[in-house]
Amino acid sequence: MNAVQVSQKLEEEYGMENVHRTSIYDDVRLLQSCGYPIKQAENSHKGWYMEKHLLEDWEIKLMLDSVQQARCVSVHDANEIRNKLLNLTSQRGRSRLISSSHF
């Protein structure tokens, strides 16, 4: 969605009238800095899109816990699997998963 489309959506669905384009740009940058996977379209006139992840964070957490408990996996292999799983999420998700993990 581009800034005009975002503004229209905010007005139609949330009753927020006259949202300025520059506010939307600022808000998108803020969300990106918080770790939301918002990407700029190749053609900047088309706006932004949410990058989809293969797995949800809770699914990655489940697999991280399973790898940690698996007795048939060496510590080295478990760490490699952990890193691969963490690369499937956003930077924000990665930091949350690392802080809740016992590796």
Rank of each mutant, 00 (worst) to 15 (best):
I24W: 07
T89V: 13
Q40V: 10
R94G: 00
M63R: 13
S95Q: 12
R96K: 11
D65V: 01
L85H: 09
V28F: 06
N83E: 15
V19A: 01
N18F: 01
M16V: 04
N2F: 00
S66K: 10
V6M: 06
R71F: 01
I38D: 05
E12M: 03
D65S: 08
S101D: 15
C72M: 04
V4W: 00
R82A: 06
E80Q: 13
A41E: 15
I24S: 07
M63Y: 04
H76E: 14
L10C: 03
H45Y: 12
V73S: 00
L85Y: 07
H76N: 07
R82C: 05
N87W: 05
Y36H: 11
R71P: 06
E11A: 02
Q40D: 15
Q91K: 11
D65G: 10
V19L: 03
E17H: 00
Q91S: 11
D57G: 06
E80K: 13
H20T: 03
M16L: 14
R71H: 08
W48P: 07
R82D: 07
S90F: 01
C34D: 12
E17Y: 00
V28C: 08
F103P: 07
K9F: 11
Q91T: 11
W58S: 15
V28G: 08
W58K: 13
K84S: 09
Q40Y: 06
E51Y: 05
Y14L: 10
E13Q: 03
Q40P: 07
K9Q: 10
S44G: 04
V73D: 02
S33D: 11
K52D: 13
D77W: 04
W48T: 09
S23F: 05
H102E: 13
D27M: 12
S66E: 08
V6E: 03
K9I: 10
Q32D: 08
N18K: 04
Q8E: 15
S23H: 11
E80M: 14
N87S: 15
L85V: 09
S44E: 14
D57P: 04
E42D: 15
Q32N: 09
G15E: 02
Y14C: 01
N43C: 09
S100Q: 13
L30I: 12
S23Y: 11
Y14F: 14
F103W: 12
H45I: 10
T22W: 07
V4K: 06
Q5M: 02
C34K: 15
L86Y: 08
N79C: 11
Y49T: 12
A41V: 09
S66D: 08
S95M: 07
A70H: 04
I98T: 12
N79D: 13
L30N: 10
V75S: 09
S101F: 04
E13V: 02
S44I: 12
D26E: 13
L30S: 12
S7I: 02
T89F: 01
E13S: 01
Q8T: 08
G15Y: 01
R21I: 11
S101T: 03
C34Y: 14
C72A: 10
H53F: 14
A70L: 01
T22D: 15
C72V: 07
E13D: 08
G35T: 10
E42K: 11
D57H: 03
N87I: 04
Q40S: 13
S7W: 00
K61D: 10
I38S: 03
L62A: 12
V19G: 02
I24P: 09
R92N: 09
L88F: 05
T22G: 02
I60L: 03
R82N: 06
